[in-house]
């Protein structure tokens, strides 16, 4: 029959794990570089889209005001996505809230979930509607300069893709993200309850 002191001695007797701090430092650097690269790629991708739109706007002599308005809407959408991604990305990886007490961390996660939900639903709806409006306006000029069939095919494909994104891909994404966050919150709440019992 062993007492707790004996268990403590067994614990103290365990061999020290051999920890390679250079390896962890290398990993830290790799991780930091990967974050920086990801950020850079996102910024470059969106900047490229904005540059292409600006170039097309400058080089092609669009005749109708609807096209100019549509390009403006597209650029606004790109900028919105760019800033939304950047701000969430930076916030997620700053992780200052890991420094806080468990209950504050749960609150942080709940707030984060709410904000993500708003972004993925309300804001994404506005984004989709604006994108759809932009496409409609853009295809007004296409209708006048090309055939009706080309307009119909182009518009159908674009709107079809937007609908697939909105009704299928985005819902899958939201479900996955919310499942992940809910499970995390649930687990933390259960533990918080255990601590306070």
């Amino acid at each position: 029959m062993k007492e707790f002191d004996v268990l403590q001695n067994i614990w103290q007797d365990q061999q020290d794990p051999k920890l390679d701090q250079d390896e962890i430092l290398k990993r830290v650097k790799r991780y930091r570089n990967r974050l920086a690269n990801k950020l850079l790629i996102e910024v470059l991708f969106m900047s490229f889209a904005i540059a292409v739109l600006s170039y097309a706007w400058y080089m092609i002599p669009f005749r109708m005001w609807t096209t100019h308005l549509s390009l403006l809407i597209f650029m606004a959408c790109c900028l919105f996505v760019l800033f939304a991604q950047l701000s969430d990305y930076r916030r997620l990886h700053a992780e200052e809230d890991f420094l806080q007490k468990p209950e504050l961390y749960i609150q942080y996660l709940k707030n984060f979930k709410q904000e993500r939900h708003k972004l993925n639903t309300q804001k994404y709806l506005v984004y989709t509607l604006l994108l759809g409006l932009g496409l409609l306006l853009f295809f007004v000029e296409i209708f006048f300069v090309s055939s009706i069939w080309l307009t119909i095919i182009g518009l159908s494909l674009s709107v079809g893709w937007i609908l697939i994104c909105y009704f299928w891909l985005m819902r899958l994404y939201i479900r996955k993200e919310e499942h992940y966050l809910n499970e995390m919150i649930e687990q933390l709440e259960r533990l918080s309850k255990q601590f306070s019992e």
Binding site: K101, P102, Y105, E183, Q187, L191
Partner: peptide, 27 residues
């Protein structure tokens, strides 16, 4: 506190990250 929050946030369903990320054991 960071370690505790990291442990508590660790989900069983969470897949282990890519091999080259985490399997190089520090130990």
């Amino acid at each position: 506190r960071i370690a505790v929050n990291t442990c508590l946030s660790h989900l069983r369903v969470e897949k282990r990250q890519a091999k080259d990320e985490l399997t190089e054991n520090i130990i």
